Computed example of a mutant assay.
Amino acid sequence: MTSSIRVGVIGLGAIGQNLLKAFTAHPEVRVTAVCDIDVSLAERTAQPLAASAWTDHRRMLDETDLDLVYVAVPPKYHHAIALDVIAAGRHILCEKPLALTLDEARDLQRAAQARGVVHALNLPLHGDPGIQTFHHLVQGGELGTLRRTELTLVFPQWPRGWQQNPWIGGREQGGPIREVGPHLLHVILTTLGPVARVWAHTEYPANDPDACEIAALGTLELENGSLVVVSCLTNVPRPEQVSLTVYGLAGTAGLVNWARPVAAQGQAPPEPVPVEGEQGAAGTRLVRALVGRVRGGSGDLVDFTMGVRIQAVLEAWEQSSATGTWVDVFRA
């Protein structure tokens, strides 16, 4: 009988709890340890799982037999905690963005590769059938020469109602560009190609130096010369919008509501495109892929190299916002 994959979870906030359900639902996975600085939360989460509860992740790593560790803490803690996980020889899944800075992200990439552990980033759009359909629409040639891409992010409230925590609305770690941006940057990088340089302008609240952005405009220049125009706006009286539109000489393809593909030929309005493939939950896909890779088989994961590529764009965006100039993107 194949033994279960023993999983530890560090960070038990909303995101960590969500993926915890996918881990516990997989028949080959056993969550054996959970860790959070809130001892009550750790104990409440551990009890129904028959898992051990910890407030010190180093002790958990030292004293618990684990195969895979999921790091679901806020971004500023990714670097230190993930390095401890990797040094302990555990396979690792990390929340996005990979780190707070590009240097930290590169540290994690190099450490994971050197240690030979499975390393993955949690990007739920990866493997989504709608995203795959969009990729085929763009790459299939029916749009003709690509002219421009537009990424639109609108949030009536930031932080969103389900995401109220001390850091998500802060300038140091949070904000929609850093929090939502990695999902769509991954789609852009895998569908359209690498980003060469970035220009960005960011607006912050006038009376709160610690608050994250309330609006942003920017342009990503791809290595093939085409442009992605980015518009982000928060705290406006309209529904949430996360959309990506690619304009070609012959047609248009896009994503609406994060992952629903639409397309049009000529001057016709965009219409929904049928999606083929399994419509399973993102967490289920991710855990299935992790199990496959940890067991030495196949599994389609976003690894830390892509995490570095995403981080490079985010860092160039922040540098451009600060300097008002175009900033070249580090090529991972």
Rank of each mutant, 00 (worst) to 15 (best):
288 R>N: 06
55 T>C: 01
231 S>K: 03
87 A>H: 07
74 P>N: 12
131 I>F: 04
116 G>F: 01
134 F>V: 14
209 P>K: 03
330 F>L: 09
122 N>G: 13
315 E>G: 02
230 V>S: 01
84 D>C: 07
182 P>A: 09
161 G>R: 15
84 D>E: 13
96 K>I: 13
154 V>L: 15
265 Q>S: 07
312 A>Q: 07
170 G>K: 09
101 T>E: 12
12 L>D: 14
244 L>K: 08
41 L>G: 05
107 D>R: 05
251 G>R: 15
162 W>G: 11
4 S>H: 07
158 W>K: 14
149 T>L: 09
172 E>A: 12
65 D>F: 00
282 A>Y: 03
154 V>R: 11
138 V>K: 14
133 T>Y: 11
50 A>C: 03
141 G>M: 14
297 G>P: 01
12 L>R: 05
41 L>T: 10
114 A>L: 01
312 A>W: 07
101 T>D: 11
293 R>W: 01
167 W>L: 07
171 R>P: 03
174 G>R: 03
123 L>V: 12
232 C>R: 03
181 G>T: 13
126 H>T: 12
307 G>Y: 10
235 N>C: 04
33 A>W: 01
287 V>I: 01
148 R>V: 15
101 T>F: 11
169 G>Q: 09
209 P>R: 01
161 G>C: 11
43 E>R: 15
254 G>F: 11
250 A>Q: 13
163 Q>C: 09
322 A>V: 02
268 A>C: 06
211 A>N: 07
35 C>Q: 10
110 R>G: 06
272 P>W: 00
103 D>A: 15
8 G>M: 01
314 L>D: 01
197 R>D: 06
260 R>S: 14
317 W>I: 02
76 K>D: 05
213 E>W: 05
38 D>F: 08
6 R>K: 04
52 S>A: 07
213 E>S: 09
124 P>E: 13
105 A>P: 07
147 R>T: 11
175 G>D: 05
106 R>E: 11
256 V>H: 13
26 H>P: 02
311 Q>L: 03
249 L>T: 13
150 E>H: 13
101 T>Q: 12
253 A>I: 15
128 D>A: 15
220 L>N: 04
2 T>C: 06
268 A>T: 14
161 G>D: 11
215 A>E: 09
100 L>G: 05
303 D>T: 05
291 V>C: 04
56 D>Q: 08
150 E>V: 15
137 L>T: 07
73 V>G: 08
52 S>N: 08
70 Y>C: 10
119 H>G: 13
79 H>A: 10
8 G>S: 13
205 P>M: 07
211 A>M: 10
236 V>Y: 06
214 I>P: 05
57 H>S: 11
48 P>G: 10
57 H>Q: 08
19 L>M: 00
34 V>S: 06
67 D>K: 02
127 G>E: 15
13 G>V: 02
313 V>N: 03
200 A>C: 00
290 L>N: 05
17 Q>T: 05
170 G>N: 07
219 T>Q: 13
92 I>C: 08
33 A>D: 04
315 E>H: 00
286 L>A: 12
117 V>P: 06
139 Q>I: 09
155 F>G: 12
202 T>A: 02
231 S>I: 05
11 G>A: 10
158 W>N: 11
161 G>F: 15
